[in-house]
């Protein structure tokens, strides 16, 4: 299958993602500029971390209006998988493809460390290769990672099993220690931790691999792509 990694001006994790897909997951991947308008060739779309448009106004606020975004919305509406990591998560909330928003970390400082996460839902197409309640280690690196939603939205997220990852030790003040959520349909995932930085033992953790392998397996099973 072929992955698309969308590069916005100010993205800075796009090559880490390309490397993880190409060299570790061993699948095809293309870097797609945010000025492109078509994603029909791809089986999955990945929005990388970074500081798109300098985080001007709010993180992800300008990127959600980039020329590629109508294609990302069509892709998501067609039920195909979209993964936003870190700034990609912020872009997905600003684009309202995911509920809630990411605000400044509670301690008002940039957090950069390896975080223990709990896989709270192993039934999504991004997490089938994990076990429910399994603890995994993924790096986090963000200043605006404090997930916020109102109590009604939180109840909805819980009811529909949309909370996919939580922090074992909440590093940023996120509501319900949320590290990653999906949309109601389960095909759009946003997460602050970086699975692409945890795909080789030399990097300290390989916990990120299963996320990509789950995704590849699910796309193959659903026959969403032409090989």
């Amino acid at each position: 299958m072929k992955f698309a990694v969308v590069a916005f001006p100010g993205s800075n994790c796009e090559m880490d993602l390309v490397y993880a897909i190409e060299d570790v997951v061993k699948e095809q991947v293309e870097l797609v500029p945010s000025t492109a308008t078509d994603l029909s060739d791809y089986g999955a779309v990945l929005l990388p971390g970074g500081f798109s448009y300098g985080d001007y106004l709010r993180s992800g606020a300008i990127a959600q209006l980039a020329p590629i975004m109508p294609a990302v919305k069509r892709f998501a509406a067609a039920g195909k998988p979209v993964l936003g990591i870190c700034n990609g998560f912020q872009i997905l909330t600003e684009a309202r493809l995911l509920p809630g928003s990411l605000q400044r970390n509670q301690e008002s400082k940039f957090v950069c460390k390896v975080a223990d996460l709990v896989v709270t839902n192993d039934q999504t197409r991004f997490t089938t290769d994990y076990q429910a309640q399994q603890t995994i280690q993924l790096p986090i690196a963000h200043g605006d990672g404090n997930y916020y939603c109102d109590p009604i939205t939180l109840a909805e997220l819980r009811k529909n099993n949309q909370i996919i990852f939580t922090y074992q030790n909440n590093p940023n003040g996120s509501v319900a220690a949320i590290a990653g959520i999906s949309n109601r349909q389960g095909n759009v995932l946003g997460m602050m931790p970086h699975p692409e930085r945890a795909v080789e033992a030399i990097l300290g953790s390989t916990s990120g691999r299963e996320l990509f392998s789950s995704l590849v397996n699910s796309v193959r099973k659903r026959g969403l792509i032409h090989e």
């Binding site: 600003e94 928003s101 605000q103």
Partner: peptide, 8 residues
């Protein structure tokens, strides 16, 4: 649509 994020 842009200047405010009505969530927060």
């Amino acid at each position: 649509r842009l200047l405010a994020n009505v969530n927060m």
